[in-house]
Amino acid sequence: MSVPAKRHHLPRPARIAGTVAAAVAASMIVVPGAHAAPAPAPGQALAAPAITRDLTESPAVAEAVVSLQATEMVYGSTGELVAAVGTVDGDPVTSGTVSFLLNGRTLSADVVDGSASVPVTTADFGSVHGYPLNTGGYWFRATYTGEGHTDAEASAKLQVSPADPALEATIAPEAVPGEAVAIEGRLTAQPDHEGQPQGSLQLVVDGEPVGDPVRVGDDGGFVTEFTAPESWQPGEHTVELTLPRHGNFNAASFALTTTVNPATSETVVRVQDAEMVYGSTGELVAAVETVDGDPVTSGTVSFLLNGRTVSADVVDGSADM
């Protein structure tokens, strides 16, 4: 009788939740940021170095654009440089700074509502010796820098034009034909402007140049005189001082006025003895005329009597009281 062969049953392995693929996939989930492999357990071989990656997103950087326009200012005055700052889409940039480079010197300003500006003064952009920008053209550059935007720059031209000079002068208020009339004064810049005009002033009387041009001093001061023409009649007369274009200042002409008074003629006062009754009202009369016998029609006569003086106007060659 044969013995049946025994069958051996191997124990069934325990069920593992999920699949190996799922477990492997779970182990590969990476949270954004920097990651490195964990340190090995004691006795465990050191694993190969893990490659780290920084998956943090960088903020977007917008492209900035600087726009400038040519500008103009008068010599010795205060000008202005203005830069518009926006994106390529036309939106205004509201932060950052713009550095303006002019005449080898730099001045910065904050960007506000898409714009930045700086004043053009002698202190900020003039010469190293403290002089204003001379007349002429100057290229200037505006450079923008700011967080969240690319750097940008642009260039434009500043034109400095000549200034009008001013004159502070006095002339003798009265002139006598045939006699000298004095003039003195000083050339200056316009109020609130810098600079000192220079050059020579030419005196013009009745439309004709008189004498040689008068050179002004370093401070613009000058003194001159002329002889009042014999042809001048009583009344106001105007003379001119002309200045040609010189350096940073325009040509100019300045008018000064003096007055010729009527000629003085010899006057004769004639009076006659007067008589009155005690206690009554008497009268004093004076006749006023020229040596040629013409009546004088203006002026006053002062009558001195008993230590007291009373005056009366001359009317038609006579005054009385």
Rank of each mutant, 00 (worst) to 15 (best):
V61S: 04
T97F: 01
P92H: 01
A36R: 14
S58Q: 15
T94P: 07
L101G: 05
T52F: 13
L158V: 00
S161N: 12
V160E: 03
E80Y: 15
L46F: 13
R53D: 10
E153D: 15
V85W: 03
P59Y: 12
A109W: 00
T121R: 08
G136Y: 04
A84L: 13
S108C: 02
D164F: 10
L101E: 02
A60G: 13
A45D: 14
D124L: 10
A70W: 09
L158M: 04
V128E: 15
A84C: 12
M73F: 02
T143P: 07
D54I: 10
A156G: 11
S99A: 09
T78L: 11
L102V: 01
A60M: 13
A34Q: 15
E80L: 15
D151H: 09
Y144R: 06
A156S: 09
G130L: 09
V31Y: 10
F140W: 10
F100D: 06
V82Y: 05
A163R: 05
L158W: 03
D113K: 10
P132D: 02
D91Y: 02
A116Q: 01
G148T: 04
P59L: 12
S161H: 11
G43R: 10
P173S: 11
A169Q: 09
Q159R: 15
S67W: 06
V111D: 01
L68F: 05
F125Y: 10
V65G: 08
H149L: 15
A116I: 02
S161E: 12
F125W: 08
G90K: 01
A83N: 06
R105L: 15
E147F: 09
D110Q: 13
T145N: 11
S108V: 00
N103T: 00
V128C: 09
A62R: 10
V65T: 11
V66G: 00
P162G: 01
P40T: 08
F140T: 06
T143Y: 10
V93L: 08
V160N: 00
L133V: 08
T56Y: 09
